[in-house]
């Protein structure tokens, strides 16, 4: 087992190697000044969307449950992470430490929210998760659109009413309802984004190739059989779902700390669907596919700016073309042959 790597470990290494290579290439391009400012501005969002895609792939591809509200967890992570960063601004001098703390806070809160969403749904069998996460995404959006949060000498002040925070002199408004969060210190950076991707990848691959991960995939393949061999189905569904939500929370915090303002409407149903598109396009359960799809489809709309009004049209056509290509019998037969030539057993 140790001397001859299993197919799963080979794929995990390949994925990590591709991410490291891409990071090194992009980082050296950026430091050499050979990168367009458009692409440089996209580096952190790409990292955030890559984490969103691989974390959603854990729920959709590995656990086999459909989630339509992944952006909701991103939103929770974004707002709590930014709040944490703002609160620590005068306490922690190091930008890097503040960023890490913000990512951690975002992950923890999103994980908790994921747990709460999961309690009623994950005990049920069927497509309830899709419905509930869809609703969750909308609810979390209106919560943050109506939430006012301030910070003063006494600590945090929270209100759902029109800015009645009763803060003392010198207090600072952090979340301003529909105005979102303004004046964010842009402390997110590409290296940390890369580190977050690597961390998530290692966690997911190690999870998948362990006892818990096997149980999660067993539930996907056949729930009744999983129960019949004594696997606590709800527990493992929850494990996968909360892990996925926590990663989305960290991605949200990273994303938000790359911009000076952030509003709740950024993390709406469209964003959830966009991330789902990354996952489906990259292949269910295929982490490398998710990464490539997320990176390419984050850059594409920006690269298409020259097409001005026809941007979204071209974007849609590219999407459809890729889907058709991926599923065409010719391409399928080709990848199948390539796989057999590599000497691997049929997947």
């Amino acid at each position: 087992m140790k001397n001859k790597l299993s197919k799963a470990s080979r794929r995990a290494f390949l994925t990590c190697a591709v991410v490291v290579a891409a990071f090194v290439a992009l980082q050296s391009l950026a430091s050499a000044g050979a990168m367009s400012s458009m692409l440089r501005g996209l580096l952190v969002p790409i990292c955030a969307y890559v984490v969103m895609a691989i974390s959603l792939n854990l729920t959709v591809g590995v656990l086999g449950e459909l989630s339509l509200g992944h952006a909701g967890f991103m939103s929770v992570g974004a707002f709590t992470g930014v709040t944490a960063a703002a609160a620590l601004q005068n306490l922690v001098a190091s930008k890097e430490l503040r960023l890490i703390a913000a990512l951690l806070v975002g992950a923890i809160f999103a994980g908790i929210v994921g747990f709460l969403v999961g309690i009623p749904v994950l005990r049920l069998n069927g497509d309830y998760l899709a419905i509930v996460t869809l609703a969750f995404g909308e609810i979390i959006k209106s919560v943050f659109n109506n939430l006012y949060l301030g910070l003063d000498g006494h600590g945090f002040h929270l209100s759902l009413l029109d800015n009645k925070l009763r803060m003392e002199e010198g207090g600072r408004l952090i979340i301003g309802g529909p105005m979102g969060v303004g004046g964010i210190q842009k402390i997110a950076n590409f290296a940390t984004g890369f580190a977050l991707i690597m961390l998530c990848l290692v966690v997911i691959f190690n999870l998948v190739n362990s006892r818990a991960g096997r149980a999660i995939m067993a539930i996907r393949d056949n729930r009744i059989a999983a129960e019949s061999v004594g696997i606590p189905v709800t527990k493992y569904k929850m494990t996968a779902f909360v892990t996925s939500a926590a990663m989305a929370g960290a991605a949200g915090a990273l994303f938000a700390l790359n911009f000076s303002t952030i509003v709740a409407n950024k993390f709406d149903f469209n964003t959830s669907i966009l991330v789902l598109v990354f996952v489906v396009l990259g292949g269910l359960g295929n982490m490398l596919g998710s990464i490539v799809a997320a990176a390419a489809l984050t850059v594409l709309p920006e690269a298409l700016r020259q097409f001005a009004d026809y941007r979204m049209l071209v974007y849609a056509i590219v999407l459809i073309a890729v889907m058709l290509l991926r599923n065409s019998p010719g391409i399928r037969a080709f990848t199948e042959r390539a796989r057999i030539r590599k000497g691997g057993e049929a997947e």
């Binding site: 999870l207 362990s210 006892r211 818990a212 096997r214 149980a215 995939m217 067993a218 996907r220 393949d221 056949n222 009744i224 059989a225 999983a226 019949s228 061999v229 004594g230 696997i231 494990t239």
Partner: peptide
């Protein structure tokens, strides 16, 4: 038949052993 069709034969048996493998997540 209800096997875990996408998993290997060995993993199917290891899933039977699930409650006898002793390590946590």
């Amino acid at each position: 038949i209800r096997l875990f069709g996408n998993l290997s034969v060995e993993d199917n048996v290891k899933l039977g052993l699930h409650n006898h493998i002793e390590y946590g997540m």
